[in-house]
């Protein structure tokens, strides 16, 4: 049961990071095509629409893997002076707090997405519906919340999680 949960969660975290990475490479391509085209009098129509909406996927796509790899920055001044018990309690608390924050983000952005649909909001040139990207942000936030809850659970049980596949930095 736990193994299956772990596997599902890992799959979602990897998928989310995969989408973000794909988005980043897509944005590089869009900018290059737009810059070259513009200097020949043929800019890519709606390039800015594509860039800003893909950015949502880039920024939130990485949240889950960042959470799983302990990538969120902390002020570690007193860590050596705290007892191991306290440090573990803090880890559990921070993980749960982060999960609550991401669930709250998902919930409020979901509400905003419904409002966007009602107001018919979309990007100015390509008419990409804002709500699509808000729903995507919600989904990616929920994966991040899941990753944080798993961190908290691991800390509570005293398990050091296996390093994620994409963790090593070049």
């Amino acid at each position: 049961m736990r193994a299956m949960l772990q596997k599902t969660a890992d799959g979602l975290i990897s998928l989310s990071a995969f989408l973000g990475t794909l988005g980043l490479l897509f944005v590089v391509g869009v900018i290059v095509v737009d810059v070259i085209g513009r200097n020949f009098g043929m800019p890519l129509y709606g390039a800015q629409d594509l860039v800003i909406m893909t950015m949502v996927i880039i920024v939130f796509g990485g949240m889950a893997l960042c959470a799983r790899d302990d990538g969120h920055i902390v002020v570690d001044i007193f860590e050596p002076h705290f007892s191991p018990r306290l440090n573990r309690a803090i880890d559990v608390g921070a993980g749960l707090l982060g999960a609550v924050i991401f669930v709250l983000i998902a919930y409020t952005v979901f509400k905003s997405a419904q409002l966007s649909q009602m107001l018919n909001l979309s990007t100015n040139l390509l008419r990409l519906p804002t709500a699509w990207f808000q729903y995507a942000l919600c989904a990616l936030s929920l994966v991040a919340a899941l990753a944080l809850m798993m961190r908290a659970a691991c800390s509570a049980l005293g398990i050091r999680p296996a390093p994620a596949s994409g963790q090593e930095t070049p």
Partner: peptide, 29 residues
């Protein structure tokens, strides 16, 4: 509070000037 949480989150995540953050990191990496 909930209104600001959602609007600031989405506005910054789709801010056309902050796209330099992932792009410069990619260039450096």
């Amino acid at each position: 509070a909930t209104g600001l949480l959602s609007s600031e989150t989405f506005a910054l995540a789709s801010n056309s000037e902050l796209i330099v953050v992932p792009l410069f990191i990619l260039m450096g990496n």
